[in-house]
Amino acid sequence: MAQIEVRGLRKSFRVPLRSSGPFGALMDLVHRRTRTVEALKGITFEIEAGQIVGCIGPNGAGKSTAIKIIAGIMNPDGGEATVLGRTPWADRKAHVRHIGVVFGQRTQLWWDLPVIDSFALLREIYDLPRRDYDETLADVVERFHLAEVLDSPVRQLSLGLRMRCDLAAALLHRPSILFLDEPTIGLDAVSKLALREAIRDWSTERGVTVLLTTHDMDDIERLCRRVLLIADGSLLLDGAVDDLRRMSSARRTLMIDLAADVADVDLEGAELVRREGDRLWLEYDPEQVATHELIARAAAACPIRDLTVADRPIEEVVAQVYRDTP
């Protein structure tokens, strides 16, 4: 049995409509008008133990609703979910003992207290045996390089350090599943790398399942073999990162640096999408024109100093998919 099983999960919300005009507020008090928004229209997937799965989708498309339901803090209207053999929302307190959650935007640490004090409070809250706690603490401190910051108040930490501390805090009770909500938001490049490394190592070595939401496609490419794309309340894609690329189109980009200035470059089978000085970007479909063929045509058409062929950046692919969903 898979660790997380979700079948036909549905959830809709009633959003109040506000009347305008001078008596609008009064009218709303008398008669509330609402509009029903379907946040999830029946979503089904399974996640095996130890996988790192990325969950992407436009804002308000339903991914945070899905995560909230699986994390046990929201009831669905219909459908089933089994996480570690339990229905998450049926017994919240038993369920949350086995999951860890990190919100990128908000810390769960006590703002004015030293980091180690927050950890000690979490030990009490999760009722962890001393030996287990000491062992896990030693492990996270070493792995995430936290030894020096343990005695600093959380408010004095840089965002990158704070996120590592938050991650450590979410792992102290050794959860089997880790939910990460935009963990790298606002981090600098070095901090991002450090955090990703921490997540990946912990997952592989301890067999922890990770489900993360993000808007950073780098997170997905570096961490996840598998992606869930949720848009408009439906699961649009459940597959590998490459499937995502294939989804919008298989178009590729040919970037050419010209050796001499040429007024116009027109190649059959390719479309000029951008030009900056003597650098050109051309898009083409490899199904219709082979890459070597196109390069040969380019070499014949203009003097070339250098060229690169690249997949379309995944950001653009995703943006395309978001645009295409209503």
Binding site: G72, I73, A94, V96, V101, F103, R106, I125, Y126
Partner: peptide, 14 residues
């Protein structure tokens, strides 16, 4: 309003 209440729901205490 800020969603911080979710954090309390994620802890194994009433």
């Amino acid at each position: 309003r800020t969603g911080d209440f979710d954090r309390l729901l994620l802890r194994p205490l009433p």
